[in-house]
């Protein structure tokens, strides 16, 4: 198995772990981290799978660089929202209360 393929398999596992975490975790900080794990899993599959023949491919590498910056922006907004929510309610989870 090539290195790229190992990365792709690891990415698939991380993606599913992050997805499950994003769905079931209650604490907002953990949830945001889980979503980052999920995104990183997808990035690993994108780069790893494209390079499964052992030759580097600059196109998915550039895509992942773009994706990382987008993920940074989304994480910053999520953390800002979570802090603002905490500042107003003292709560760290979203459970219950809404229709």
């Amino acid at each position: 198995m090539s290195t790229g393929l190992v990365f792709a398999h690891a990415g698939a596992v991380l993606f599913v772990l992050g997805l499950a975490g994003g769905l079931v975790l209650g604490h907002l900080l953990r949830r945001i981290l889980a979503l980052n794990v999920m995104g990183s899993g997808a990035f690993l599959v994108l780069v790893g799978l494209a390079q499964s023949d052992g030759q580097p491919d600059p196109v998915p590498q550039a895509m992942v660089l773009t994706g990382i910056v987008v993920a940074v922006a989304a994480t910053a907004l999520a953390l800002g929202l979570a802090r603002a929510f905490h500042a107003r309610t003292g709560r760290t989870r979203l459970d219950g209360g809404e229709e």
């Binding site: 792709a8 990415g11 993606f15 992050g18 997805l19 994003g22 769905l23 949830r31 979503l35 999920m38 995104g39 899993g41 997808a42 990035f43 599959v45 994108l46 799978l49 494209a50 499964s52 196109v59 998915p60 895509m63 994706g67 989304a74 999520a78 979203l94």
Partner: peptide, 19 residues
């Protein structure tokens, strides 16, 4: 949270198709 989970799933699909 929903939006990010949804984009993550979408991106995984893109990764598989590119692969």
């Amino acid at each position: 949270v929903v939006s990010l989970i949804a984009s993550g799933a979408y991106l995984m699909g893109v990764a598989l198709l590119y692969g």
